[in-house]
Design a protein around this nucleic acid. Structure first.
Length: 484
RNA sequence: GGCGGCGUAGCCAAGUGGUAAGGCAGAGGUCUGCAAAACCUCUAUUCAUCGGUUCAAAUCCGAUCGCCGCCUCCA
């Protein structure tokens, strides 16, 4: 099955064919490090992490570049507010970002360039644009002349006249045209600056991405990704300045993820309706958040709510419960469980498990349809449980390994052992009762059950249930978990 | 105002021409001291509405209604 991806540029799903056989160059816009990351950042990075994982899985030699914007007006503003150096802000939130990524199970990109490390590259690019007549310098600022770039607006599907008539374009007298954007900004007193041929200043927002992609991936590369909100003006401007400078196609496939919403409104700092990754991870296991993000197709909006997260938690727990169940049986039956299907039912199940990767690949090949892929994993899960009920342990164990393996490799899930997962999930649920107390009550109940004092046994179970603890009587005794 | 997108069961969500995946919640059953978990069965003649194209449409086209996003920093 060939991979097809939705390209924002064409507005259609296209057959994915990299520039160079077997190799993929991919760039995703990373964070501006001026504050802690919220769930929107979690989605974007998780989406492109999974895309990078899948491309690797598909056999491509992937160079995945994700930048860090470490100089920007917002960073300077924050530094002024706190009366510290801008670099201190950038370093602090870069560290926070890395912590979040690691907690979320996102793999580090192949290359993680920082804007400030590419100032000379930006200068060269800006000079080329001036030489070619696409840019002009005014009093230490350098602007890109949008009108000179004929196909401006192709990605975001707008034309320049419409943009002008939109009332929200800022007016800056020094620009030749209101749509022109800054490539280089002169520094005001007290602001950080770098030397340049046009005077001391700092880079404009868009130029860094062009400089970093060209240096790391070449003038033309395969995939450029980011949130939908970056389509205009950021990516439009990247295309303009890059293609004007090189005369070549910039990125060949443009991928954009949808927003995380709350009550169907975009999660945004300005609306104050955002949750930081760290806040959410205090209450939910990181894989719950990851699972939640992957159960909706990456281009669609996803609405964040406690209900949605709890549903995700229930769904993910179902996988871990099954793994736990299988592992206990496997350990009890002393290891070596090579799949040896004998009955018709086992043979059929064996074939289904063998075919699971193919089904999931089919889903992922269709513009990275993680939602459908996870649906197939649920089907397989049900089958594992049934085999478990029927005592077909070798096939059951085989299925467990297939599901856990694919889920881990493709989606970054199931990295924990079931014990770790439930322990963490329980700890995060902020119980009103200690683990020791629960253990004591379970013991008391076991005694009551032996002496057939079922009334007392039920009393204990109900007491715990009121505190959100569900007891499960299993072959190895009673275990407990937190109500979802 | 311009541009883009979305509207699928109680909720979430796949499906983009061939007769509605999956999850959560709900009902019944098996199992259990009773439960929980697991499994089995059931739960949208129908995909916002109205027209059109087609042998065939949730899927394509047009109109209408509703929601959201971008046009300013934004994942």
């Amino acid at each position: 099955m060939p991979l097809r991806v939705y390209n924002t540029m064409s507005g259609e799903k296209e057959l994915f064919k990299p520039l160079e056989d077997g190799k993929v160059g991919m760039y995703a816009c990373g964070p501006t490090v001026y504050d802690v990351c919220h769930i929107g950042h979690a989605r974007a990075t998780t989406v492109f992490d999974v895309i990078a994982r899948y491309l690797c899985y598909s056999g491509f030699d992937v160079t995945y570049v994700r930048n860090i914007t470490d100089i920007d007006d917002k960073i300077i503003k924050k530094a002024n507010e706190e009366k510290v150096l801008w670099s201190e802000i950038a370093e602090r939130y870069t560290k926070e970002f890395w912590e979040d990524m690691s907690a979320l199970g996102n793999l580090p990109p192949s290359i993680e360039p920082k804007a400030t490390e590419y100032i000379p590259n930006m200068h060269k690019l800006i000079q080329t644009l001036i030489d070619k007549g696409f840019a002009y310098a005014v009093e230490g600022d350098v602007y890109f002349a949008v009108r000179k770039f004929a196909s401006y607006g192709r990605l975001s599907k707008r034309n320049m006249d419409e943009l002008i008539s939109g009332a929200r374009v800022e007016v800056d007298e020094r620009k030749n045209d209101p749509l022109d954007f800054a490539l280089w900004k002169s520094s005001k007193p007290g602001e950080p600056w770098w030397e340049s041929p046009w005077g001391n200043g700092r880079p404009g927002w868009h130029i860094e991405c062009s400089a970093m992609t060209m240096k790391n991936l070449g003038q033309t590369f395969d995939i450029h990704g980011g949130g939908k909100d970056l389509i205009f003006p950021h990516h439009e401007n990247e295309i303009a300045q890059s293609e004007a400078a090189t005369g070549k196609t910039f990125a060949r496939y443009w991928l954009h993820n949808g927003f995380v919403t709350i009550n169907h409104e975009k999660m945004a700092k300005s609306l104050g309706n955002f949750f930081t990754i760290k806040e959410v991870l205090k209450v939910y296991h990181s894989e719950v958040l990851r699972f939640f993000l992957l159960t909706t197709h990456y281009r669609n909006p996803i609405d964040y709510s406690d209900t949605a997260l709890n549903d995700a938690k229930t769904g993910l727990s179902k996988f871990y419960s099954t793994f736990k169940r299988v592992d206990e049986i496997t350990v009890n039956s002393g290891g070596d469980l090579k799949p040896s299907p004998t009955t018709e039912s086992e043979k059929a199940a064996f074939e289904i498990f063998k075919g699971l990767s193919g089904k999931i690949e089919e889903a992922m090949d269709d513009d990275f349809n993680t939602a459908q892929a996870i649906g197939y994993m649920f089907d397989a899960l049900k089958l594992i449980n049934r085999l478990c009920d029927e005592g077909s342990y070798s096939i059951m164990s085989y299925g467990r390994n297939i599901v856990a393996g694919l889920g881990n490799r493709l989606f970054g899930l199931f990295a924990a052992t079931p014990e770790e997962f439930f322990k963490t999930a329980e700890a995060k649920a902020a119980l009103g009762i200690s683990g020791d107390e629960i253990s004591r009550l379970i013991e008391e109940r076991a005694g009551a059950k032996i002496s057939k004092e079922f009334k007392r046994a039920d009393e204990i179970r109900n007491t715990l249930l009121e505190k959100g603890i569900i007891l499960e009587d299993g072959p190895k005794g009673t275990t407990w978990k937190v109500k979802g």
